[in-house]
Amino acid sequence: MPSETPQAEVGPTGCPHRSGPHSAKGSLEKGSPEDKEAKEPLWIRPDAPSRCTWQLGRPASESPHHHTAPAKSPKILPDILKKIGDTPMVRINKIGKKFGLKCELLAKCEFFNAGGSVKDRISLRMIEDAERDGTLKPGDTIIEPTSGNTGIGLALAAAVRGYRCIIVMPEKMSSEKVDVLRALGAEIVRTPTNARFDSPESHVGVAWRLKNEIPNSHILDQYRNASNPLAHYDTTADEILQQCDGKLDMLVASVGTGGTITGIARKLKEKCPGCRIIGVDPEGSILAEPEELNQTEQTTYEVEGIGYDFIPTVLDRTVVDKWFKSNDEEAFTFARMLIAQEGLLCGGSAGSTVAVAVKAAQELQEGQRCVVILPDSVRNYMTKFLSDRWMLQKGFLKEEDLTEKKPWWWHLRVQELGLSAPLTVLPTITCGHTIEILREKGFDQAPVVDEAGVILGMVTLGNMLSSLLAGKVQPSDQVGKVIYKQFKQIRLTDTLGRLSHILEMDHFALVV
Rank of each mutant, 00 (worst) to 15 (best):
E144S: 06
T193S: 02
I214W: 05
I261R: 02
D198N: 10
E62F: 07
I142S: 05
K30F: 02
T257W: 06
S174F: 04
P21T: 13
K269I: 02
G139R: 11
K97I: 12
G115A: 14
I76N: 12
I76V: 02
E37Y: 12
P138F: 10
I166L: 09
E62I: 14
P33Y: 09
S32L: 10
G96C: 13
E62V: 07
T191V: 02
H203S: 10
T68P: 10
L241Y: 15
E144H: 02
C275Q: 07
H65L: 04
V255T: 08
S27W: 12
G185Y: 02
A207F: 02
A130F: 05
I92Y: 14
L56W: 09
W208F: 07
D179V: 06
P46I: 08
P74K: 15
G31V: 15
G57S: 14
P273L: 10
S174H: 02
A130Y: 02
K94D: 02
C103G: 11
K102V: 07
M89P: 07
A183S: 12
S32D: 02
L136W: 08
I76Y: 08
A265C: 05
S175A: 10
F99Q: 08
I219R: 07
K83T: 09
K98W: 10
H17R: 08
A114C: 02
M169F: 02
H66Y: 12
R182A: 02
R58N: 12
E187R: 06
R58E: 15
G139L: 07
E62W: 05
N225L: 04
G162P: 11
V118D: 02
P273K: 12
K102P: 05
E187F: 06
M169G: 02
G258F: 02
A231N: 07
K137H: 09
A24M: 11
P273Y: 02
A157L: 02
K75D: 02
S175R: 05
L251S: 02
I261V: 14
L154T: 02
M89W: 04
S63Q: 02
N194K: 14
C244D: 02
M173E: 02
G85M: 05
K211C: 04
A157Y: 08
D47G: 08
S32R: 10
C272D: 15
G274P: 02
T257E: 04
R121Y: 06
L230C: 13
I142P: 07
T260L: 02
I95V: 11
G148T: 04
V160I: 06
G263A: 02
E9S: 02
G11Q: 02
P229A: 06
P145R: 02
R45G: 10
L105G: 05
A183R: 02
G151R: 02
G256T: 02
N113Y: 02
N216V: 02
S254D: 02
G96R: 13
P74W: 02
T5I: 15
L101V: 06
V180L: 08
S227I: 07
D238L: 04
I143P: 02
G148Y: 07
E4F: 02
E176I: 02
V252A: 11
K172F: 02
K94A: 09
L106D: 02
K211N: 12
C244R: 07
I240V: 13
P78T: 12
G11K: 08
K211H: 02
C165S: 06
K30E: 15
S174D: 02
F99G: 14
L136G: 04
P59T: 15
V178F: 13
H22L: 09
E4P: 10
G148D: 07
D133V: 15
E213A: 13
L154V: 10
P70M: 15
